[in-house]
């Protein structure tokens, strides 16, 4: 996991001409960093994450992962190092049971079955859901599905974890579990969320975006404590900070 980083330079992207979704985004995230992305009106954060894993290549500018430029030819190599957790766990889980879903990626990378099993067991253990091993996907609760989604990417042993709205639809207990789990990981993490309390608990660095541009990039503590800044972009202080005011 040495010297892994993502470098985004002058990234521009739009689905339709004259309606830019991302404008001149430049961002560098290094090893073991945990970066939160918050967006004023909610537009653009999923798009940014999807661009970082190459789900859309019609962008301008450059994206490099550990100095490898993100292009069609380099996608398999880059994706092997990145794990992307979808906002909706149902979009991520499609195999009949938990084990098969977690084993899906290592099998695709052509690993021998013993290694697939070892990685799958390790991924399940990392998110503490060994007991769900044989459970059919449709019998999982929302929180369990989220944990399984994370296990499905951990079995790829990624260096970078990208998460889109990870706290959505989680009850308080599962939310706490997820926060604890993410703080246990030493990967480079990029977490896009509208849940500022979640960002506060999991990210040391925060990027505030509005209208497709980066407005502020700095320490989470500085940005999320800045009530005036947040209010100027239609956001509010994290609830946990309200109480401490």
């Amino acid at each position: 996991m040495s010297h892994i980083h993502i470098c985004v330079e002058h990234l521009n992207f739009s689905y339709e001409k004259k309606q830019p979704v991302l404008q001149d985004i430049s961002l560098f995230a290094g090893e073991q960093e945990s970066v939160g992305i918050i967006v004023a009106n909610g537009v653009g954060k999923s798009t940014l994450l999807k661009l970082l894993v190459g789900l859309n290549l019609n962008f301008e500018g450059s994206i490099r992962v550990e100095d490898i430029p993100l292009e069609k030819q380099t996608l398999p190599k880059i994706r092997e190092r990145m794990g992307y957790v979808f906002q909706d766990a149902d979009s991520q889980l499609f195999m009949p049971n938990v084990y098969e879903d977690v084993a899906f990626a290592p099998r695709n990378y052509g690993l021998p079955e013993e290694e697939v099993e070892r990685r799958t067991e390790a991924a399940l253990a990392a998110v503490h859901i060994e007991y769900l091993r044989e459970k059919p996907i449709y019998k999982l609760s929302g929180g369990e599905k989220k944990m399984v989604s994370i296990a499905t990417i951990l079995s790829m042993t990624p260096d970078i974890i990208l998460m889109d709205e990870p706290s959505v639809a989680l009850d308080p207990k599962n939310r706490r579990n997820l926060i604890r789990l993410l703080n246990e990981f030493s990967h480079l993490k990029i977490i896009a969320s509208h849940d500022l309390d979640f960002i506060w608990d999991t990210c040391q660095r925060t990027v505030l975006m509005a209208e497709g541009k980066i407005i502020r990039d700095g320490k989470t503590e500085d940005i999320l404590r800045d009530g005036e800044l947040l209010e100027a972009y239609g956001l509010e202080l994290p609830l946990s900070l309200y109480e401490k005011r």
Partner: peptide
Amino acid sequence: RAEELYESMCLRGY
């Protein structure tokens, strides 16, 4: 939904 499932598969080496 099908698009997202397919994307999820591609991201995991399919």
